[in-house]
Design a protein around this nucleic acid. Sequence first.
DNA 1: GGTCCCTGTCATGCC
DNA 2: TAGGCATGACAGGGA
Length: 544
Amino acid sequence: MDDPSAQFQHEDLIDILWRQDVDLGVERDIFDGCLRQREEETTRARERELKRKRELERIMQRLQKLDKETGEFLPSPSSVTSQAVPLSEALHSTVFTPRSPVTQNPLLSALLFSQKSQKPPSQEQAFSELLSLPDLQYYLDVLDSEASSLPLEDITEICHQNLPEPLRENSTDALLWDVTQTLSDSFEVAQTLSSIPSDPVEILETCIQTFSDPGNHTPSPSNMIYSCSTPENQAILPKCQINSSDSTLSEFCPYTINISSLSKPEQLNSAPQTLSQFEERHVRLGFDDSASVGSMDLETSLYAPDTLNKGQSDKDELESIQSDYTDLLPLSLQSEAVEATLCETITYTQHQTQNESTPEYSQREPQANLSTTSGAAGVRHVYRDEQRAQAMSLPLSVHDIINLPVEAFNEAISSCKLNHTQHSLIRDIRRRGKNKMAAQSCRKRKMDGLIDLEEEIEDLKREKEEIKEENERNIRELHETKVKLRKLYNEVFRQLRDEHGNSYNPREYKLQHSTDGTVYLLPRSTADKTNMPTEDLPIAVYHT
DNA sequence: GGTCCCTGTCATGCC
DNA sequence: TAGGCATGACAGGGA
């Protein structure tokens, strides 16, 4: 590190890692804030560690079991089992308990328990996947067991500080942080809502201020969702509007809130009633029906039952594709993949205008399935590779994968431990990207060559026309010259006289000039025989 | 439904 | 030898 170049490389690596986080949608200030907050919570957690150690050990035994052969943390049987449980059962078994803070929180309850028909299917499926994560299972367990007797800060702290180190230190903590903050924000919203007056407009404004406070850098449920989307996906935020009679509210609130669901604030304070009534009057945050029911790409489809129901074969293929990727990932990467998928589920629905055929996504049959389309489809292709990169948690953006120099690229991928699938994918993306650019330049050269050949053909045609015109002009000039010569010949012959003053007969004599300009009068018979003037025959009659 | 055009991808050879 | 480039061929999708 004393070497300046080494320090520079170290900083470069840090920047590369930052760019990776930015690619995953995590802003630097948020990340720094998370780190600071985690450090503070770590300090506080150590103070309480002895107090809670016994209870947490019990929870940890429920959650994780260390595989002594591989060194990996494996989900507990209960967690594994819960992954296969349907959404309703999973919710009831993990969250939906009488004293659960989730059910005691009307807004969170509405988010998690609204009816299928009133919630975007992809959203529900995404929550199903999210809730089935071991990390979240653990969190919900903690909530279930402790939240009723502990303040919110302690709940968050427990979830952050008492997870196993590999999970906490891994990239999984980004997801855990999201989930924790999501639930924490829901508590805060619930606390806010519990104290609001009966005026529905004030209720709505309170919600808006809670969720859209620009000065609040703490990730909220919605802004955490959008923060992990790409910048271009964040551009869709303004499209989300409030389903309210007051359309002006949509100008400053990016979240979709059905104001009718807030028409009776007392419902928010009575959990049993609130749950059922929120099922009828759904509260939706960050989702737009029109977008949600629109077409979806692969990851979107993975969490959209209506899409999956199109055909069992499609569903099976999607599941197999998903397992192809995620099954090969470590737990943390799986969590990130699901996180990225969840974000894309939410954001990409607005980006897609067509229901992309999912078989294209298969990598098992690249020749048949990796083909893409023209025009906007080219953009979709890049977008699909971006999806792949995000789904596989690749450390580089597609642009960097394709355009980085070989040394930088190799250094980047070697600095990050990639599994075989990730390595193959990143190589494929780079190869395809390079070849795509090569094909584009090749076709451009070919087109340029054709254009050059066409221009050359036109030039040759023009040159041919010019030569043809010149030839015709020369022929005309030659003819005119011959006419003039004939006239001159006749004129000269007419003026010639012999020694007796008689004119020469043109049938017996003719004029012939030599190269030196001398003109000879020759008898036709002699001139025809010799074709050359001689000293005897010629009669010099005229000098030019 | 056939055809043309565009584009991505693969295979192959060359550097 | 690996990687990139160039290019023909093929296939899919849109017009």
